[in-house]
């Protein structure tokens, strides 16, 4: 049984102001195995974030079935950790309180909450900043808190929606390396949405290329280049050429259609 099963997912947004419907996801079928690091790759507006939101339970598919660990997704829940594009931390809580927020909601006593959160503070390298508020930290540090917050729930899958898009190039590289290290250490299933071919190739062992709206799956590429990955190696560039060709094919097809 796959960790995540998407069956015939269709999503139509009704644009009430313009009185028309917008087909965003068109019959998506995808199986994601446990401990996979899957990158959903596609241009802006292809519905990749919508697909992630459907798995997270934030949005409902118009039709189709979404199963996580064999259970139908109906609402958001702590079995699926989400890392948002913006850190989306509670601004009134310190780093450690944000990370331990899930435990607070479960009624765990403060001493134990802090005890368990410290492990994740260390994991994302934020020791010394545990009592800082989000406004006192950089974007990269806040995003680390967001990742630690999702990991602490020990979810079966982690859903990430372009979490590094707002970071500068250098911080982005560091965060990508750290994320891979965390994934290797903790063996969890990650679905990572991105529009960057390089990012997908650095991170994923399965890259799902999506088409422009309406979003369909163009091809799911398995990519098992050993890590750490050398982005200048011939294998890396072969894969990149292949994916870029898929994307280019897509835009030529669109240009001819119009």
């Amino acid at each position: 049984m796959a960790a995540i099963e998407l069956r015939n997912i269709v999503k139509v947004f009704s644009d009430k102001r313009r009185g028309r419907d917008l087909l965003t996801l068109d019959n998506i079928n995808l199986d994601i195995e446990a401990n996979d690091f899957v990158c959903l790759l596609g241009p802006s507006g292809c519905g990749k974030s919508t697909l992630l939101n459907i798995i997270a339970g934030f949005e409902q598919a118009t039709s189709g079935r979404t199963l996580v660990d064999g259970k139908q997704v109906e609402r958001p829940g702590s079995d699926r950790g989400v890392v948002f594009q913006q850190p989306t931390l509670m601004p009134w809580l310190t780093a450690i309180d944000n990370i331990a927020f899930h435990l607070k909601l479960k009624g765990v006593a403060k001493a134990e909450r802090y005890d368990r959160a410290m492990e994740f503070i260390d994991l994302v390298g934020l020791r010394g900043f545990e009592h800082h508020h989000p406004s006192e930290m950089s974007g990269g540090m806040n995003q680390r808190v967001g990742i630690a917050r999702a990991l602490l729930m020990n979810p079966s899958v982690i859903l990430m929606d372009e979490p590094f898009a707002a970071l500068d190039a250098q911080t982005k590289l560091e965060m990508q390396e750290e994320l891979v290290a965390i994934w290797q250490k903790r063996r969890c299933t990650i679905v990572f949405v991105t529009h960057s071919v390089d990012e997908a190739l650095v991170l994923g062992n399965k890259i799902v290329v999506m088409t422009r709206r309406p979003g369909r799956i163009r091809e799911a590429v398995n990519f098992d280049l050993p890590r750490p990955r050398d982005i200048t190696s011939p294998e890396f560039n072969d894969a990149k050429r292949h994916i870029l060709a898929l994307i280019r094919e897509e835009s030529t097809r669109l240009a001819q259609a119009s």
Partner: peptide
């Protein structure tokens, strides 16, 4: 911010907790 509400739901907040632990502090 409705993303804070989403984050709360993701971490398993029930509707009372959503009000007392997320919406109320955010509205302060």
């Amino acid at each position: 911010d409705h993303n804070l509400v989403r984050a709360g739901a993701m971490m398993g907040a029930n509707s009372r907790q959503m009000l007392t632990d997320i919406v109320l502090p955010a509205a302060l």
